[in-house]
C-alpha cells in the first residue's frame, strides 16, 4: 500500500507495506512525513509527535495528532488509511511545488515513453556475429577461403577460420602490406641441424612451432619495452655535471 507515493517521496523502504492498524507504525510514518517532507511545525514544536513508544504515550500522542490534523488542514476522511493517504498526497504536492520547473515536463506521454522497454538500438557492425557457424555451407566457404589463402585446413572449420584470420592480419592488412620487408636472411630452417626429433617431418614441425613461439615472445618483449618507455616519459630526467668529474691522477 502507498508504494508509489512512498517511492515518489524517497521513503527508505517504499516496498514494505505500512500496517495502518498498528498505531506505532502509523505514528512513525506520520512523524517521518512531518520531519522530512511536510515540515509544517518548527523543529522544537514537533516534540509531542515524537513521543512514540514511551510508557502511556498513546494519550498524549493522539492529542498532538488531532491538533496536527487541524493545523495542516486535513479534510474530513474516514479512518487511518485515508488519513495517511491524504498526508502522503499532501507531501507529494509540497514536493512538486518546491520543484515545479523540474517536474513540469513529466507529462503522461513523456512518462509512457520513458517506460517503454529500451530496445537495443546498436545493430552489430560485426558480420561474424550473425554467422551460422554450424551449417555445411559455412564449412565449405571456410575451406574455399583457406584454399584461396593457400593454407591447410583443420577438421573444425572455426579453427580453420581463425588461421585464415591470423594470416590476413599478419600479411594482408594495409599496415602489414605497407611495412618494408625485413632485411637479412631468414633462418635456414630446412638446413639447420636436428632440433628435437629424429623424424624429419616431426622435427620440422617442432622447429616451426619454436619459431612461432619466439615470435610471440618477441611481441611480449616489445610491449614490455613500450611500457617501460611510457613510464620513462614520466620518470626520466638524465643529468650530467662535468664539474663533478675528475680524470686520472
Amino acid at each position: 500500500m502507498f508504494r508509489n507515493k512512498l517511492t515518489a517521496l524517497e521513503h527508505p523502504t517504499p516496498d514494505a507495506p505500512i500496517d495502518c492498524s498498528n498505531r506505532v507504525q502509523f505514528a512513525n510514518t506520520v512523524l517521518w512525513l512531518e520531519d522530512q517532507k511536510i515540515r509544517h511545525y518548527k523543529i522544537e514544536d514537533r516534540e509531542p509527535l515524537r513521543a512514540i513508544g514511551t510508557p502511556n504515550w498513546e494519550k498524549n500522542w493522539e492529542a498532538a495528532y488531532e491538533q496536527y490534523k487541524n493545523d495542516v488542514g486535513m479534510m474530513k476522511v474516514n479512518g487511518p488509511v485515508e488519513e495517511l493517504s491524504w498526508l502522503l498526497s499532501y507531501a507529494v504536492r509540497l514536493e512538486y511545488l518546491d520543484n515545479v520547473e523540474t517536474f513540469k515536463s513529466f507529462t503522461a506521454d513523456r512518462v509512457n515513453e520513458l517506460n517503454k522497454p529500451s530496445k537495443p538500438t546498436i545493430s552489430s557492425s560485426n558480420p561474424f556475429d550473425n554467422l551460422n557457424l554450424v551449417g555445411g555451407n559455412f564449412a565449405a566457404c571456410v575451406e574455399k577461403l583457406a584454399k584461396r589463402l593457400n593454407h591447410s585446413t583443420h577438421v573444425d572449420p572455426a579453427i580453420t577460420l581463425e588461421a585464415s584470420a591470423r594470416l590476413i592480419y599478419e600479411k594482408l592488412r594495409p599496415e602489414a602490406l605497407n611495412q618494408p620487408k625485413p632485411e637479412g636472411k631468414a633462418f635456414p630452417i630446412k638446413e639447420s641441424e636436428q632440433f628435437m626429433f629424429a623424424d624429419k617431418n616431426s622435427d620440422e614441425a617442432a622447429k616451426i612451432l619454436r619459431l612461432l613461439q619466439i615470435q610471440s615472445v618477441r611481441n611480449v618483449q616489445t610491449s614490455v619495452n613500450e611500457n617501460i618507455v611510457a613510464i620513462q616519459e614520466i620518470t626520466a630526467d638524465p643529468k650530467t655535471d662535468s664539474k663533478l668529474g675528475k680524470v686520472g691522477f
Partner: peptide, 16 residues
Amino acid sequence: LFDHIPVGVGSKGIIP
C-alpha cells in the same frame, strides 16, 4: 669519449 667518460685511478663520475 675521453672527455665524456671519466677514466683512471681515482677518477670521479659526472652523473650527480
